[in-house]
């Protein structure tokens, strides 16, 4: 297994808060790599650094041997990293399939003028984008809702839609920020199957999640963050046995 993502001694401060302190790890192609830790541990901040939403104060990030430490968000996306958001960022002004079609942006190339004049190229693109978008919706089981306005969907479906959208961009690495938060037991189980099928389709998954049984059952490796520091990095069994982790997080989560 080769390292798809390498994070080297990355730190990030917000004013006085050290959101991430000297974090080093790498993610291998094909694995499900989870990040857990109490609220405010820096999990979302890590995703923000990986997608160029914020920049690291120190350290470097390598993806597919490209240095992405200072790259802009849309450039990183074009290299093949996609993410979902803890606080959903669906385009509520579009219906489901339009949301997903938007994600095909980097897979097609027509410009604004061609679009305005609806050149032949645009018509061809629209046909193929329609197909890609339906495939992505089908993958998350939302094919029938293609034309539903997104602002009428329940929360659980919006979470799926956001994943479908990320998948339509054909990423090699997907970052899921609390995909099961706010879902009931059935929905959580469905989400687990979805994450597993994403992984099976060859996409590397990084997962932030508070639902411990989900994390422990599907992750290959887990990194535990606490106050911006890496407390432990290992397999689910190793992490569960670690006394420091139990004291800082698992004990509290279990109790």
């Amino acid at each position: 297994m080769s390292a798809l993502l390498e994070v080297n001694s990355v730190s990030r401060r917000f004013g006085g808060v050290e959101a991430l302190k000297d974090i080093t790890f790498s993610v291998h192609g094909g694995e499900i790599f989870s990040i857990i830790g109490p609220n405010g541990a820096g999990k979302t901040t890590l995703f923000n650094l990986l997608t160029g939403v914020f920049y690291a104060d120190e350290g470097s990030i390598l993806f597919n041997s490209h240095d992405i430490t200072r790259k802009r968000t849309f450039e990183i996306a074009r290299l093949g990293i996609q993410r979902t958001f803890q606080n959903l960022q669906i385009f509520l002004n579009m219906n489901c399939i339009e949301n997903v079609k938007t994600a095909c942006h980097t897979r097609i190339s027509s410009g604004m003028i061609s679009g305005c004049l609806r050149l032949k190229k645009v018509i061809q693109e629209e046909r193929i984008v329609e197909k890609w978008a339906m495939e992505a919706l089908d993958f998350v089981g939302m094919k029938d809702l293609a034309l539903a306005p997104s602002d009428t969907l329940p929360y659980g479906l919006l979470k799926r839609l956001e994943i479908a959208r990320a998948l339509a961009a054909k990423p090699s690495l997907i970052l899921l920020d609390e995909p099961a938060a706010g879902l009931n037991d059935t929905e959580t189980l469905e989400m687990r199957h979805l994450i597993e099928s994403i992984s099976r389709s060859g996409i590397t998954v990084m997962l932030v999640e508070h639902n411990m049984s989900l994390v422990m059952e599907i992750s290959h490796r887990i990194m535990v963050l606490n106050y911006g520091q890496c407390l432990k990095l290992g397999t689910p069994t190793e992490v569960q046995k670690d006394p420091e982790v139990i004291a800082a997080y698992l004990g509290e989560a279990a109790g």
Partner: peptide, 23 residues
């Protein structure tokens, strides 16, 4: 109904999500 038109409406919906999609 074109690539850039969707990009514009995406910016309206969520600028950060639009960037993350490579726009």
């Amino acid at each position: 109904d074109s690539r850039m038109g969707r990009a514009l409406r995406a910016i309206h919906g969520s600028e950060i999500a639009a960037e993350v999609l490579g726009i």
